[in-house]
Computed example of a mutant assay.
Amino acid sequence: MKNKIVEANICMVISKGFSGLNMNALKYLLPFWISPFTGVALRCVFAAVAFWIISFFVPSEHSTGKQKVQIFLLGALGVYGYMCLYLVGLSKTTPVSSSIFSTLQPVWVFLIAVLFYQEKVTWMKVVGILIGLGGALLCISTQQSDDLASDALTGNLLCLGSSVMYAVYLVISNRILKSVGMFTLLKYVFTGAAFSSLIMACFIKFDAPVLTLPIHWLPLCVLLFVLIFPTVISYLLIPLGLKYLNTTIVAIYGYLILIVATIVSLSIGQDRFSWTQLSAMLLICIGVYLVEIAERKTPVTEK
Rank of each mutant, 00 (worst) to 15 (best):
residue 91 S to N: 14
residue 93 T to M: 06
residue 95 P to I: 10
residue 96 V to W: 01
residue 96 V to D: 13
residue 97 S to I: 11
residue 97 S to T: 12
residue 97 S to Y: 09
residue 98 S to C: 12
residue 99 S to T: 13
residue 100 I to N: 08
residue 100 I to C: 07
residue 101 F to D: 09
residue 101 F to A: 08
residue 105 Q to D: 04
residue 107 V to C: 09
residue 108 W to R: 09
residue 111 L to I: 13
residue 111 L to D: 05
residue 113 A to K: 11
residue 113 A to V: 06
residue 114 V to T: 11
residue 116 F to N: 11
residue 117 Y to V: 06
residue 117 Y to M: 12
residue 117 Y to I: 08
residue 117 Y to Q: 10
residue 118 Q to W: 03
residue 119 E to A: 11
residue 122 T to V: 02
residue 122 T to C: 02
residue 123 W to R: 11
residue 124 M to A: 01
residue 125 K to C: 01
residue 127 V to K: 05
residue 127 V to L: 11
residue 127 V to E: 03
residue 127 V to H: 01
residue 128 G to M: 04
residue 128 G to F: 02
residue 129 I to M: 09
residue 130 L to G: 00
residue 130 L to N: 00
residue 132 G to A: 09
residue 135 G to D: 01
residue 136 A to G: 04
residue 136 A to F: 07
residue 137 L to K: 04
residue 137 L to H: 02
residue 139 C to A: 12
residue 140 I to W: 05
residue 142 T to P: 04
residue 143 Q to K: 14
residue 144 Q to R: 14
residue 144 Q to H: 14
residue 146 D to L: 05
residue 147 D to C: 11
residue 150 S to F: 06
residue 152 A to V: 09
residue 153 L to T: 13
residue 155 G to W: 07
residue 156 N to W: 04
residue 156 N to L: 12
residue 159 C to H: 00
residue 159 C to P: 05
residue 160 L to R: 15
